[in-house]
């Protein structure tokens, strides 16, 4: 069981004037691929930290409500214990790297857990291969590019084999190809290893082909949660989210008033096929 269940979560950072999270309740099923969206300051990072147990254990502050990761209640377990279930990749990936070389970085979490050396070597190799950093084991972390550092931060979490993977803006330093490759990797982990994934993402078009659930936060509360189509339809109906919609859905919602209702597009291919079919029908109608 690696579901995430949050009920009535409210949280205020120490000395903060207003709460960062207010009465958040949601459920992410075991094996789900969820994308968390929202404007800046909506509480996305705080929610990720609450799932990993850093809120309130590390930051202190006032918390109400409950967070369950698998069968572990975060308020009743230490960060180390929660870390065995939840792997968190922070937004500030550069500060997340604590050792000198690439292989040491990936091995760090495993050494802390007392994993055998032979197993550490195997997992380091496997994790680096997953993120495309094979052959860079001996390289200094300071010499890596931003994108490589971000992938290394992900590898160091993957090596510990968590059941739940939480990534806070994991593509902020990646080029478009790198971002797309990362999502394909996350999709593989989700499908092949049944990993529950929660990813904070501003560019929803990256998560759209793979996500099974979208969550939209606003002012520390869940504004809308559900299937990607439900959430995108909702966002489409709100003017202030117009720019956050994936281009595919901007096109879909723009065309629908003029034409028929389209399916819930997830990829360019789906959209192209349906549009071609629609145009063919129109042509056939004109000919008739």
């Amino acid at each position: 069981m690696s579901e995430i269940v949050i009920s009535g979560l409210s949280y205020t950072y120490p000395k903060a004037a207003k709460p960062s999270l207010q009465n958040v309740s949601l459920k992410i099923d075991s094996g789900a691929f969820a994308a968390l969206a929202g404007l800046n300051g909506s509480g996305k990072t705080s929610l990720c930290l609450a799932i990993a147990g850093a809120v309130p254990h590390y930051y202190g502050g006032a918390m109400a409500g409950q967070v369950y990761t698998g069968e572990v209640k975060t308020t009743e377990s230490g960060i180390c214990e929660i870390a065995n279930i939840v792997g968190l990749v922070l937004e500030d990936y550069e500060s997340q790297l604590v050792t000198l070389t690439v292989e040491e970085e990936v091995a760090f979490g495993l050494e802390n857990r007392g994993v055998e050396q032979s197993e550490i070597n195997r997992r380091v190799k496997e994790a680096l291969q997953m993120v495309g950093l094979s052959g860079k084991e001996k390289q200094q972390t300071a010499a890596l590019s931003g994108g490589q550092k971000q992938r290394l931060a992900i590898a160091s979490v993957l090596a510990t084999k968590p059941q739940i993977l939480v990534l806070d803006e994991p593509t902020s330093a990646l080029d478009p190809e790198g971002a797309s490759e990362l999502y394909e990797l996350l999709h593989r982990l989700n499908q092949d290893h049944k990993l529950t994934i929660l990813v904070v993402e501003h560019d929803l078009s990256l998560a759209l082909p793979f996500a099974s659930q979208f969550i939209l936060l606003a002012d520390g509360s869940v504004e809308k949660a559900g299937s990607p189509a439900e959430v995108l339809q909702y966002m489409g109906s709100k003017q202030h989210y117009a720019c956050s919609l994936p281009p595919l859905w901007q096109l879909k919602l723009g065309l629908e008033p003029e034409f028929s209702s389209f399916g819930d597009w997830k990829t360019d291919d789906e959209a192209a096929n349906e549009l071609i079919h629609c145009l063919e029908k129109l042509e056939a109608g004109k000919s008739a």
Partner: peptide
Amino acid sequence: MELRGFGSQKRN
């Protein structure tokens, strides 16, 4: 470091 188990007694 906390999130990656630093401070655990099982260190290798």
